[in-house]
Design a protein around this nucleic acid. Structure first.
Lengths: 346, 346
DNA sequence: TTGTATGCGTTATCAC
DNA sequence: GTGATAACGCATACAA
């Protein structure tokens, strides 16, 4: 293995220094610019770097002046959900603009996995964390917060710790949507929702209940299905609800996946001559506008959510030490959905 | 600030050692297990760790025994495309299973940005890279490959370098789909495709042309639109094509976004009484089965692609030094799409 | 303009 | 069972 082709290991500044017949410091100066270096020496070093294929080790650099790694972690509950992948895209884009690299982790709504992931990210000395919490208690992060790791929560507020958080107006969005259904004359409005113990699930259910109360409608237990965890389960729940003795004339679903499940059930029912049910679902989604079935969604800007949460984090990284901030992203009713597939593929 | 609450900086082993009245080495032993430590000393150290909120610095650890960082990078062209986010999910899941953390980066199909991202990831000493190449030449990675950084390419083969690659059967999938249209009696089959200079674009166009040739159909230039970069542009192209003097009776679109655009155009046309066009698109997508319009897709398993590419990388990380491998993921025709929203939200 | 000593947080090695 | 020392790759402080 000739020196000219580079060795078999990743070359260090020492290797370059040896190759260029200078000291390590001179190499460091050339690599980092700034300090004056003799043009000829400089060229010798550059040649050596080229020959050896040297790349500065940013980890060692960071270790030296014990500062930022330029790394942030994004911990989400379900990256496969289009909503969270949109969030991730927005976070990645904003982070990169700020010169930060992004490590993503998926918890699959498992608190233990979340804890493990977060610990790993802290061990990797990320500058900051964006967490969509699955766990019930984040008190274990309190110490890290005071010691220089910034944490911002997303979608759901943390418990056991005071930190920045960006949420969606879950309660208001759900309440307004259901109020709209009631205003249209619906007296029996069904609810299909994900786990009520999850913040978004609880708030959206509360919004539904509040709207019923406001409209003077009774909250019938047999019209409420909670703890539904996916499209297929939602399809079964909707079929069950709509095929029952006193079927609701309208349905509210608490997230995008459940909306799709309900739509499938409605399509099946319509095929056998079932009545048209009116549907409103939380979360907009791609192609919602392309479906023939009439329904509408409670939409909000997932990209804005991602940008906001990343901006808050960046703010902390920049030294902001004020009290925790809570930002709420507003919702708006969107008939038939409006989220076109706007992305380009080049 | 009492010692019991921890200081304002991230505590190191030294801090713990001082607190527990032992040497750093003892702390290290306690932290890493393995070496025998007196139970009482051990407890003192654990208490100190608890009090101070110490977390081992995995960067420094990595620096010490100059080995794997346990980090891999995923560089994709368009994370906003559902296809790539599915890929990312599969990669993240597989990586985590292997104990690797994942840094994701989006190039937006920009070669310069890709280069910059890759350089940054190499500086961060990732153990390996998964790249969906946007750049035309990856010769600059040749040196890194021999020096211990594993690289696997995804979706498109690299140029200027020999490395593992996992692709989709773009040519075969497109050819079979268009052959199917021809077999159904279509003589004028339109093509709406993304950039032909991109590997997938070129291969799918070639597949289209091959199918036409096989069927003895002329390749009419006015039926081919390439370089289309998104759903909106595809919608215009399709409307243009279908509204023209000699409109095709069938359409082939080269990816999911373009398929959606074409579907929009077809819906508009149908609303004004236009003829029914037959459509086949490359890439399956969510809700394809829910759309009323008749069409079909060329489907393939994006998760399998992600798992495969990550497995190949893991193989290299484990020391595999054989010649570069090329894996091709097969496609299958899927009437109306079959990709249900199967994910769960808990 | 260039080099030496030192330290970042951790661990391998060897001594006690 | 425990500790001192050196080293990982790099950069700051200071000296030459």
């Amino acid at each position: 293995m000739s020196p000219a082709t580079g060795g078999r290991h990743r070359p260090t500044m020492r290797d370059v220094a040896r190759e260029a017949q200078v000291s390590v410091m001179t190499v460091s100066r050339v690599v980092n610019g700034g300090d004056p270096v003799n043009p000829q020496t400089r060229q010798r070093v550059l040649d050596a770097i080229e020959r050896l294929g040297f790349r500065p080790n940013s980890l060692a650099r960071g270790l030296r002046h014990n500062r930022s790694t330029g790394l942030i972690g994004l911990v989400v509950t379900n990256l496969a959900n289009p909503f969270y992948s949109r969030l991730a895209v927005a976070v990645e884009e904003t982070a990169r603009r700020l010169g930060l690299a992004l490590i993503v982790g998926n918890t699959d709504e498992d608190a233990a996995r979340e804890r493990q992931l977060v610990e790993d990210l802290l061990a990797r000395r990320v500058d900051g964390l964006i967490i969509v919490p699955a766990g019930e208690d984040h008190g274990y992060l309190a110490g890290d917060l005071t010691r220089g790791t910034s944490v911002v929560f997303c979608s759901r507020p943390p418990r056991g710790i005071d930190a920045d958080v960006v949420t969606v107006d879950d309660f208001g969005g759900a309440r307004d949507a259901v109020a709209g259904l009631a205003a249209k004359g619906h007296h029996r409005i069904g609810y299909i929702g994900h786990l009520a113990r999850i913040h978004t699930g609880g708030e959206r259910l509360n919004g539904y209940l509040a709207a019923l109360a406001d409209a003077g409608l009774p909250a019938a237990e047999e019209l409420v299905r909670v703890g539904i965890t996916g499209a297929e389960e939602a399809e079964r729940a909707a079929a069950d609800l709509l095929g029952g003795p006193a079927a609701p004339t309208a349905l509210f679903t608490s997230n995008n996946l459940l909306t799709v499940g309900a739509l499938r059930a409605m399509r099946t029912l319509r095929a056998v001559g079932g009545a048209g049910t009116e549907l409103v679902g939380f979360d907009d989604f791609d192609l919602a506008d392309m479906l023939e079935q009439p329904f509408s969604v409670v939409a909000y800007d997932a990209e804005l959510l991602g940008r906001t949460v990343t901006d808050l984090l960046a703010d902390r990284l920049a030294g902001e030490t004020g009290p925790p901030r809570a930002v709420v992203i507003g919702t708006r009713p969107a008939p038939r959905g409006t989220l076109a597939a706007r992305q380009a593929t080049r």
